[in-house]
């Protein structure tokens, strides 16, 4: 009973905040709504006993990705009024896509594939099953090689990003270490007779 109540709370909130993302006039508010939406989705994961996914969603999406989003939006200086131009022009195509999607959703959800009887009962694993530990164990044993290769891919992405963007600007200020080390007292201190 309590679980169902929480489900409707998290689910309803994430739908509302999802709408908020689209409808907010200020882009910054959209980002905030999206963060709120992620928190609620994380709550849904907790209800399904997937605490690892719930935590990861908050850590990575809220903690890293959305912060990056915020930086990008702040730097882009999006003009909301300009974006809304041509709303009517795109309405027929956008509306059509929305209607088709709606029909698809209704058809799929009423077809019986997702009926409660077809899904199997949801049972809780109980406290002794710790899926963070389970994921960790399989990731660092059976999938260890893949995990290590993924780490190297990230390293390559890092190297690639630096290689492609590094610029030696003439007006930038650099530290010349050998000059700093070689410096003598006479270069810096001057004796003045008062």
């Amino acid at each position: 009973m309590l679980e169902t109540a929480f489900f409707y709370m998290f689910g309803g909130m994430s739908v509302l905040s999802g709408m908020g993302v689209v409808l907010a006039r200020n882009t910054m508010h959209s980002v905030m709504f999206l963060i709120f939406c992620f928190f609620n989705a994380s709550g849904l994961f907790f209800l399904l006993d997937a605490e690892f996914l719930g935590i990861i969603l908050i850590l990575i999406y809220v903690g890293a990705v959305m912060v990056l989003f915020m930086f990008v939006i702040m730097m882009l200086e999006v003009n909301a009024a300009k974006l809304r131009e041509g709303f009517l022009q795109y309405l027929p195509l956008g509306g059509m896509i929305a209607v088709v999607l709606m029909i698809e959703f209704i058809a799929a959800s009423s077809s019986g594939v997702f009926a409660e009887s077809a899904m199997g009962a949801v049972t809780h694993m109980g406290q002794e099953v710790n899926n963070t530990k389970e994921i960790g164990q399989i990731l660092y044993t059976r999938y260890l090689l893949g995990f290590e290769i993924a780490a190297i891919i990230l390293l390559v992405a890092l190297i690639g990003a630096v290689v492609l963007t590094i610029r030696e600007r003439k007006d930038a200020k650099y530290q010349n270490m050998s000059a700093q080390v070689k410096v003598r007292r006479e270069d810096r201190v001057r004796k003045v007779s008062m």
Partner: peptide, 20 residues
């Protein structure tokens, strides 16, 4: 798993090499 990760590792490096 190994195949796809190996493929991506190779491809990422070659993209950067092309733009070197």
């Amino acid at each position: 798993v190994t195949m796809y990760l190996g493929l991506e590792l190779m491809a990422l490096c070659v993209y950067v090499l092309v733009a070197y």
